[in-house]
Design a protein around this nucleic acid. Structure first.
Lengths: 200, 200
DNA sequence: TGTTCGTACGAACGGTCGTTCTATTTTCGC
DNA sequence: GCGAAAATAGAACGACCGTTCGTACGAACA
């Protein structure tokens, strides 16, 4: 079975993820990537057969890493509110845990591909929906555990967490707002407080 | 004074805005744009002198249109909460008011340029900061008018509105969530309710 | 030892990019 | 209407794109 090849391919995917974080999945160039990794263009290309396949594999690699560094550790936290908190904290730390110097690759890809039909958009949408469903599931468990009020809408909660994450990404990266992290946490605390309090 | 040239340039900028909405500011291609507008590549190019200048002008054009269709109409609403609401509603309608088939051009540009130093990033950041400041100003007026509680942080409010807008953009475009609009409104109502209520 | 196969390389392809140059057409004040 | 100036077109450039092809190296297996 391919031993050396697998190592190389993983190294390529790691480089592709970092590169995509900066220039987007579509902005990746086989020339740039091969130069950065000291490989030949054709040698790198041979591992994937097409650019689209490289993009797809990079997306898959990112999803696997995300599961490793934010989903799985959160499962170690107790069910209910603590786990919801762990997911949020993991979300904020994910672009540094798996180095993405240009910001979350899913955010970049979402904006790039939200109107470009094809397998990449399809897979990306799937990944995002899974994340959404997982987050909503954790919220539902928090309701069942009595941490959150029973008439809370988990999907709505997930929607708003998504918004906080995106606003944080935006404020910290483009706006260089030093208070971005603090703002994100305050927003999340307000959200949790509203979820905890009995119906007004 | 340039008469014909100005008309052409405006038509180019309108086309560039629509195109940038789909493929991003960097994704714009002079060939694509000239073909779409039935102009020659060199003829179009002559209006701007460089691609970067075209991008910068497109960004400026978008900012001017944004001021026209969301900021100015909101000024017609009474100060305080109504104006804050008008700004939020205008924000959600802006990509359809000024046709952007691929979604808000500022969102696309923000993700593309948040880590690409240069005049485009600088100008984009300025535009976004102005919007943030304007929104926060409207919130401050709502506090002064007694609509919102006096210890509300206008910047925090603006941060969260930003998040709702981004989450809505994301949910409606990539995820094809039919409830995205409803969710955005519910999130906004919760935000306003929290701003209105006396400190818990 | 010889053969095979997985792996990487170098050269080249047609195509498109942003840009430059030189003409040609169109506009507009006189 | 005329002539200057502005506006547009056309061809070409070097660079880089994704992709293909033929080939060389190295290890595994006969």
């Amino acid at each position: 079975m391919g031993c050396k090849g697998d190592q190389t391919r993983d190294a390529i995917l790691e480089g592709a993820l970092k590169l995509a974080s900066r220039v987007g999945l579509e902005g990746i160039t086989i020339g740039m990537l091969s130069e950065e990794l000291a490989l030949s263009k054709s040698g790198l290309f041979a591992h994937f057969g097409s650019k689209e396949s490289l993009q797809l594999r990079t997306l898959e690699y990112a999803a696997a890493r995300f599961a490793q560094v934010v989903v799985m550790p959160a499962l170690a936290a107790p069910r209910g509110e603590p786990r919801v908190r762990a997911l949020f904290e993991g979300l904020l730390r994910w672009p540094e845990r798996v180095p993405q110097p240009g910001g979350c690759v899913f955010v970049a890809a979402a904006v790039e591909f939200d109107d470009r039909p094809g397998p990449i958009r399809d897979r990306l949408r799937e990944i995002r929906r899974e994340w959404h469903a997982f987050l909503a599931g954790a919220v539902r468990r928090a309701i069942d555990a009595g941490h959150f009020r029973s008439d809370l809408d988990p999907q709505q909660f997930a929607f708003e967490v998504d918004g906080i994450g995106l606003a944080w990404h935006h404020a910290s990266r483009l706006l260089d707002d030093p208070k971005a992290g603090e703002r994100a946490h305050r927003a999340f605390e307000a959200l949790v407080a509203g979820a905890r309090a009995p119906r007004r």
